[in-house]
Design a protein around this nucleic acid. Structure first.
Lengths: 86, 86, 86, 86
DNA sequence: TGCATATTACACACCC
DNA sequence: GGGTGTGTAATATGCA
C-alpha cells in the first residue's frame, strides 16, 4: 500500500536524522571538552608565570611551518606530475 | 654562582615550555580529528540524500535552545537564591 | 532649539553614512574589476595552451616561500622571548 | 634544426609564464591594498561611533538589490527579444 | 553538479 | 566592560 510505504519512508528518514544529530552533537561535545582542556593548560601556563600569548604564537607558527612543509611537498608533487615526471 | 642559577632557570623554563607545547599540540590534534569526524558525518548525511546545510541549522538551533534553557534555569536559581530559597 | 539640533545630527549621520557607503562600494567595485582582470589573465594562459591550475600553484608557492622566509626568524624570536631571553 | 626550435619554444614559454606571473602577482597585490583600504574605512566608521557590522549588512543588501534589478532587467530584455521587440 | 578553494562573517578571548 | 584581534565557521566562487 502506497500510504504505508510513504509513512515508513518518513519514519526511516526521521530515525536516520535523529541518529545523525546524536552523533554530531556527541562529537561537538567532545570537541568542547578538548577546547576547555586547552584553555586549562593555558591557564596553568599563566599561573606559572609564562606569557600565554607568546606561547600561543609559538604553537601557531609551529603549526604553520608544518602545514607549509606539507603543502610545499604536495605542490612539488603536483608540478612533477604536471610536467610528466610522475 | 649567579650564572649557573640563571642557566638552570632558563633550562627549566625551556623544559616546562616544551611540556606545555606538547600537551597543547596533542589536544589540538585530537580536536582536529573530531572536526574531521564531524565532517565525515555530514558527508554521510549528504550521500544519503539529506541536506547537510539544513541539518547544520537544526543542530545550531537545538544548541541555542539548550543555552536558552540553561540561562532561564540560572535566572530561576538566582531568584530562588535572592528570596532565600536556595 | 533641541529639535533642530537633533535633526541636524540625524542629517549629519546620514550624510556620513552615505559617504562611507559610497567609498566602500567604490572600493569593492575596483576590487571586483581586479578579480576579473586576474581571471582574464588565467583565461589568456589557458588559451595559450598553458595549465592554469599549475600556474596558480606556482604563484601560491611563491607566496608561501615569501611568507615563510620571516617565519622561522619570528619563531626563534618567540622562543627566546618565551624563556625570558629577549 | 629541431633542437633549436625546441629550445626556442621552451624559452618562449618561460618568458610568457614569467610575464603571466608578474601580471597576476601585481594584480593580487593591488587587490590586497584595496582590501586593506576597505578595512580602513570600516575602522573609520567604527571610530566615528557607527556600527560597522550593520553598515556591512546595508552594503550587502544594496548589492543584492542591484543584482536582483539586473536580473529583472535581463529577464525583461529576454521577453522583449522573445516577442521581437529587441 | 559536486568538490575544492577563497573570501567573508561570526564568536570568542584578551587587553585596556 | 568595550574594543580589538584572532581563530573558526559559513558562504560564494570557480573548476572538473
Amino acid at each position: 500500500m502506497a500510504k504505508n510505504t510513504e509513512e515508513d519512508s518518513v519514519q526511516l528518514s526521521g530515525k536516520k536524522l535523529k541518529s545523525y544529530i546524536a552523533k554530531i552533537e556527541n562529537l561537538e561535545e567532545q570537541k568542547s571538552h578538548i577546547t576547555a582542556d586547552i584553555n586549562d593548560v593555558y591557564g596553568e601556563v599563566k599561573s606559572n608565570g609564562f606569557d600565554a600569548k607568546v606561547l600561543k604564537n609559538v604553537i601557531k607558527l609551529r603549526k604553520l611551518s608544518k602545514e607549509r612543509r606539507t603543502e610545499e611537498q604536495e605542490l612539488l608533487d603536483l608540478y612533477m606530475s604536471a610536467i610528466g615526471m610522475e
